[in-house]
Each structure stands twice: as structure tokens, then as C-alpha cells.
């Protein structure tokens, strides 16, 4: 109990600090989790509680602005400036389209330089184009974007080596959209959870195929396997080697496709057996990865819903695509190589 008589300390006793209370002494992640559920003003106002609290908020690993109605861009500036520890998680839900994109660029630059690991950004309108410093966030493990445009990847982009979760919803990927996305996915060797909803891949038409050699140079990749995917684009031999192939080019819409590889290496897809080829478990074992090729037919603007899961031995990938549209042809090749615990499997199932 805080008793009021004791709370006014005589002047000049700056060193007289009370022992930290139980709340401020909670494990950092627990306290972070609690304060992330508050309005950012309330988080900052904890600084006035006591000396132990004064700089506590500045060192929290997360800045979660999803519940911070009424904040302005200058508030975000102020709070980022006050931070004293690396920022692990940044979550922003912008509700006002008058926010300046400039401010956002600065924040993204700040985040990329402070080793942000989880980035979750939502915007009210599609015209918010993210700054290319997004691609400098090398520490990212989770990237969740809602309603914005991806910048072109800079030539030196070498992937997100730790990215495990990628969720894009209402996102435009301009200029070689399919390739940008494919390169991003290919260069993220740990990616195990991919969700694309209403993603527009712009300008990835067949007339650009001739530039593939240049484009390949544009997006260096981390793994030789990923390299193979790009070098062997559209080739039959590559397709045959794929552990699992899904070709939707003959279908205008696909409602829901679920498959599970069984022990004998055959895929079970009762509804559309011809779209699935026999899985070559041996080559899978060599590659230690599951690859899914999605082809979208020209003019196919809506892929209603595809959600499938691939489970093989210990390797599990969860992929969900919804209403992905392209300006022409897009080929997204997805490599998922991630060992997910049995717990996750149960949850996904």
C-alpha cells in the first residue's frame, strides 16, 4: 500500500530510492506484455510512479501502438527518441491518412538500425509506400503488413536470414512484383509461416521474362537451392524435381486445397488429384525443403482461397494465400524450410 504521508520526500534526498515494487520487478517480457496492452500515453505516464519506474518504459522491448488512439506522428518521434534499449517489436496501426509518409520513413530507418525483430504495420490506405530501409531490417523474424506498398528491393538486399513469419494483406508489390516476392521468400531460409491475402503483384508479365538474367542479379540469394529455383524457371526438369507441385493454371478459382503427404510419399488431394504430382521423398530429403509452385493464369485476378498445409516428417509449412492477384502472369515459388514443433502442428491442424 502506498501511504501518502511517506510519499513526499524531503528535498535534496535524491539518492533515497524506495525498493522497487513487485510490478516493476516482474520479468521484463511479462511487464512488456502488460504495458503493450495499454495506450502509449499510459505507458509513458508510468514514468511518474516512482524512481524505479522513471526510465522503465524507455527500455521495454516493444512499442505497440495498436491501442494508441489519438496519437500524432510527433508523439511517435518523441517516444522513439527517448528509447534506451534495442527495439524488438514495433506495431503501428495508422488510422489517419494525413500522416506524413516522411515521418514513417524516419521510423523505419530508426527501426532498421535498432535491430527490430517483429514489425507489424497497418495503414488506412494503400498509397503508403514503405521506405526501402525495410530491407535493411536484417534481424526480422516476423513481418506483418496491412494495406501498403512494398518498395523495390535494393540491389544489395540479401534476404531476411531469420524471418519465420511473413503475412501480407492488401499489399501491392510493384515492379517485378512476383520476382520481388519470390526473391524475398527464397532468401528467407527459415520462413515457415506465410500468409498472402489480397496481394497484388504488379508488372511481372511475360514480356519481362527476357530480363530474368538481370533480375537474378538484382536479388542475390542466400541459399544455393534458392538459386536453383530462379535459374531453372519454368523448366520441366525443375518442376519434376519439386517435392510438391501445385498448378492452378487450369482453374479459375480454387476453393480450398488441403494436402498431407503420407508416409509413402503420395499426396492426398481427393478433390483435384490431377493437380498434384507424386512427391519425390528422396529429393525432398536431399533438399530438406518443401517447395510449392503456384502459377496464376493470365487475367486471373482472384484466387478465392487456397490454404494448404504440407506435413512431412518433421518439416511443416503453413501457407495461406487468399485473393492474390496479378497484373498478368506471376509465378511465386515458395520455399519453406522450417522445423516447427509438434505443438504448432496440432494448432494448425
Amino acid at each position: 500500500m502506498a501511504d501518502s504521508p511517506r510519499r513526499r520526500m524531503p528535498q535534496g534526498t535524491a539518492a533515497a530510492e524506495s525498493p522497487p515494487d513487485a510490478l516493476v520487478s516482474l520479468p521484463l517480457d511479462v511487464l512488456d506484455n502488460i504495458l503493450s496492452r495499454l495506450h502509449i500515453y499510459e505507458v509513458v505516464r508510468t514514468s511518474v510512479l516512482s524512481r524505479a519506474w522513471r526510465r522503465r518504459w524507455e527500455a521495454l522491448p516493444s512499442v505497440d501502438l495498436a491501442r494508441s488512439h489519438g496519437i500524432s506522428a510527433s508523439d511517435v518521434d518523441a517516444l522513439l527518441l527517448r528509447r534506451s534499449a534495442p527495439l524488438r517489436t514495433f506495431r503501428l496501426v495508422a488510422r489517419d491518412s494525413t500522416w506524413f509518409v516522411d515521418a514513417l520513413d524516419d521510423w523505419l530507418l530508426y527501426l532498421s538500425r535498432n535491430g527490430v525483430q517483429a514489425l507489424d504495420l497497418s495503414f488506412p490506405e494503400l498509397y503508403f509506400r514503405l521506405h526501402s530501409s525495410l530491407f535493411s531490417c536484417r534481424e526480422l523474424t516476423s513481418l506483418v503488413l496491412n494495406c501498403c506498398r512494398l518498395p523495390p528491393a535494393p540491389s544489395e538486399f540479401a534476404g531476411f536470414p531469420n524471418l519465420k513469419t511473413l503475412r501480407l494483406k492488401d499489399v501491392d508489390v510493384p515492379k517485378h512484383g512476383g520476382k520481388v516476392l519470390a526473391a524475398l521468400i527464397a532468401a528467407s531460409p527459415l520462413l515457415g509461416d506465410l500468409e498472402l491475402m489480397a496481394v497484388k503483384l504488379i508488372g511481372d508479365g511475360p514480356h519481362e521474362e527476357g530480363q530474368s538474367a538481370e533480375s537474378d542479379n538484382e536479388y542475390p540469394r542466400t541459399s544455393p537451392d534458392a538459386q536453383a529455383i530462379f535459374m531453372g524457371r519454368e523448366s520441366e526438369s525443375l518442376l519434376n524435381e519439386c517435392s510438391a507441385i501445385m498448378d492452378t493454371s487450369t482453374e479459375d478459382t480454387v476453393d480450398e486445397v488441403g494436402t498431407q503427404t503420407t508416409g509413402n510419399g503420395l499426396s492426398n488431394d481427393v478433390a483435384h488429384p490431377r493437380r498434384w504430382q507424386r512427391l519425390d521423398i528422396e529429393s525432398v530429403a536431399q533438399l530438406e525443403e518443401i517447395e510449392v509452385t503456384i502459377k496464376l493464369k493470365e487475367q486471373l485476378h482472384q484466387m478465392n482461397y487456397i490454404s494448404w498445409m504440407i506435413q512431412r516428417q518433421g518439416f511443416v509449412a503453413k501457407i495461406k494465400l487468399e485473393a492474390v492477384s496479378t497484373s498478368s502472369i506471376a509465378t511465386a515459388r515458395i520455399i519453406c524450410r522450417h522445423q516447427i514443433s509438434e505443438h504448432s502442428v496440432r494448432r494448425f491442424l
Partner: peptide
């Protein structure tokens, strides 16, 4: 909040005021 969580205010009134001023935007 101090009362709920048993937090002892060990600031002087001047210090308290200063902190509010420092983070005026949030107060």
C-alpha cells in the same frame, strides 16, 4: 495506480513535475 500496486512515490513534487514536463506529450 500507486495505491493498487503498492508503489511508493519516492519523487519530490518538483521532480514529479519535471517528469511530467519532460514527457508533456503523453501527459
Amino acid at each position: 495506480n500507486r495505491e493498487t500496486f503498492g508503489i511508493v512515490n519516492d519523487f519530490t513534487p518538483e521532480e514529479e513535475e519535471e517528469i511530467c514536463k519532460e514527457n508533456e506529450w503523453a501527459f
